[in-house]
């Protein structure tokens, strides 16, 4: 699947992107030969047949794990290897936080159905779900800057993923967190509501189940019965959904990364498209496919962990 999808993207990318455009309008203008000379060693010249280009690229990938180079000669491997972790830091943290927050809120509001807390929670989630990421990010940036000014030092960094001149284990961690907080909060704000609503409605379906009543009849308080018996069964579909949203979150990070000046995969995606970097684009697509596969795998694992019935059979 991943292989097929990636190869398909390769051909699609050639359909839409043309590295030659990078040299159009250069001053002084480059001759046709010069352009070909620049592109050919990078396997990006359309003077070579598409099939041959493809084979060069594909064999490179499978035999040498070499994903090619950009039109300016940077190795895609290096770029991805570095940026992957930058994005992962952001996306994983945000996904986990949004999930935990969504589930917790779902449980809290479901156990207080139609009471004030439930209504406030619901209303807030409806609002945050509809906030645009750009708006959320800018709002947070403004707030953070205001806060920084108020306390007089830079507590939150509004750009970049790390400061270059920090050394030492703890300082690095603290520095990373200072950079991480704002974009994470932005992603969490727009991302948690989906989980909240799903968890709330699933739990409400289960709260009135007979087995929750049995659990209460045993001597569990209502809260205990809900947390232990109703939650477990309602978590199964939530876990599946969250695992499948990981790739979406990654792509949702595109804007966040640009706004906060992170050199992650999302920004890389924008850059490769702008620079007609075919190999980079394809590598990102492959990366997305891998993420989807990992998401599916995680979903399966979650189901197996949560639902012993699957384990038995």
């Amino acid at each position: 699947m991943i292989v097929v999808a990636t190869n398909l993207t390769y051909f699609l990318a050639w359909g839409f992107l043309d590295p030659r455009n990078n040299y159009v309008g250069r001053r002084p203008p480059l001759s046709e030969d010069q352009v070909v000379q620049l592109l050919q060693p990078r396997n990006l010249s359309d003077t070579v047949s598409l099939l041959e280009r493809w084979w060069n690229w594909f064999s490179g990938v499978i035999f040498r794990w070499d994903w090619g180079v950009s039109p300016v000669g940077q190795s895609v491997n290096d770029q991805v290897a570095y940026r992957m972790w930058v994005s992962a830091e952001l996306v994983l943290g945000a996904t986990i936080l949004a999930t935990v927050l969504g589930i917790a809120l779902g449980v809290y509001t479901a156990s207080r159905q139609y009471k004030i807390a439930d209504r406030i929670g619901q209303a807030t989630s409806i609002i945050t779900m509809n906030i645009n990421i750009v708006v959320a990010a800018l709002g947070i940036v403004l707030l953070a800057i205001g806060f920084n000014n108020m306390v007089g030092t830079t507590v939150f960094f509004v750009t970049g993923s790390a400061s270059p001149d920090v050394t030492g284990f703890f300082p690095i961690i603290i520095d990373a967190l200072q950079h991480l907080i704002l974009p994470t909060v932005a992603l969490v704000i727009i991302g948690y509501a989906g989980t909240h609503f799903l968890q709330r409605s699933l739990l409400l379906d289960n709260i009135n189940a007979d087995y929750v009543r049995t659990a209460r009849a045993k001597g569990l308080t209502k809260g205990q019965a809900i947390r232990k018996h109703a939650l477990r069964t309602s978590l199964i579909p939530v876990a599946t959904q969250v695992a499948f949203t990981i790739p979406t979150v990654f792509m949702g990070a595109i804007l966040t990364e640009s706004i906060f000046g992170w050199n992650g995969m999302g920004r890389y995606f924008l850059e490769t498209i702008a620079k007609n970097d075919i190999h980079g684009t394809v590598a990102i697509a492959a990366f997305g496919a891998v993420l989807t596969a990992i998401g599916a795998l995680l979903a399966d694992i979650a189901v197996v962990v949560l639902d012993p019935r699957v384990r038995v059979s």
């Binding site: 009543r213 209460r216 001597g219 477990r232």
Partner: peptide, 22 residues
Amino acid sequence: SAIRGNGLAMIFQDPLSSLTPV
């Protein structure tokens, strides 16, 4: 809840749904 299931116990109608499936 200290009394339920201790001094006071209950058997429900539908055995198919009254146990937690997981």
